[in-house]
Design a protein around this nucleic acid. Structure first.
Length: 254
DNA sequence: ATCCTGTGGC
DNA sequence: GCCACGGGAT
């Protein structure tokens, strides 16, 4: 199968079976940025309501830039990878001050925006003909083409990106793909194959990760006396901009 | 127990 | 290149 055929079939499938997600109703770069940062390592179902509420509370980059960091961190509760909240807040300040970047390099200059997110924003908000490669898109391309990138047909970068996300999320699953429903199956060399998990995740119970999360949750409720917390864990939060020491107290920043 | 639309620090 | 970074769902 050629890349052109793949794009064709995925786009046809998407027209009939694509998901209707709230951030697909906007082209506002700030709103797309919020969705992409939330979606980094976080599943769609958990992001939908949080994105909607976030955009209601802070509709523009200037609105988010004007918020306190403490409020932004508090609003991130439950989304995980809390550094993203600090990065997004700082990114909003840069957007409010410097305007909207028009290319991937410009977006890469924002904290929390790496190669994937920069490409995604350019494809989805700026309508550039690029396809961001995340693990899901990479999986589809490797299985179907033996390739790691794809050049979208002119004018189709935006739709092909959304279409590949949906194929990856609903059909070309990591372990057990649903080839019987996949528009690529008839010409996919990997059709019918199963895959073993390769990633082993360390235990969460009793981990430093858990301790971090618990301390941050306490800070979200109220400042605490420094002596009442594990200094090593507090130092980790401070290093990431998630907490600060004020006298004898540990608080959310600002 | 395993999965999940990455980024940044070293 | 390797590692830390959350938390919910299944």
């Amino acid at each position: 199968m050629t890349p052109e055929q793949l794009a064709d079939r995925v786009l046809s499938w998407y027209a009939a079976h694509g998901r209707d997600l709230p951030w697909r109703h906007t082209r506002d770069p700030y709103a797309i940025l919020v969705s992409e940062v939330m979606l980094q390592q976080t599943q769609v179902d958990r992001v939908i309501e949080r994105w909607t509420a976030w955009l209601e509370r802070w509709p523009t980059a200037a609105d988010l830039a004007a918020a306190t960091r403490a409020d932004v961190i508090a609003a991130w509760q439950g989304l995980g990878y809390n550094r993203r909240a600090v990065a997004l807040h700082e990114a909003a300040r840069m957007l409010a001050e410097q305007g909207i970047p028009q290319d991937q390099a410009g977006w890469r200059a924002l904290p929390g925006v790496g190669p994937y997110t920069a490409a995604a924003i350019c494809a989805l908000a700026l309508d550039h003909d690029v396809v961001p490669i995340d693990v899901n898109v990479q999986r589809i391309l490797e299985r179907a083409l033996g390739a790691t990138t794809i050049e979208p047909p002119t004018g189709k970068g935006h739709d092909l990106t959304q279409a590949l996300f949906d194929v990856g999320a609903t059909l070309c699953l990591a372990r057990i793909p649903r080839c019987e429903a996949c528009p690529l199956a008839s010409d996919c060399p990997s059709r019918g194959q199963r895959y073993e998990p390769q990633r082993k995740q360390s235990r969460f119970e009793g981990s430093r990760r858990q301790a971090r999360g618990q301390l941050l949750d306490r800070l979200r409720q109220a400042p605490i006396r420094f002596v009442d917390c594990d200094a090593e864990i507090a130092a980790l939060l401070i290093k990431d901009g998630l907490a600060e020491r004020r006298g004898s107290m540990l608080t959310l920043p600002q």
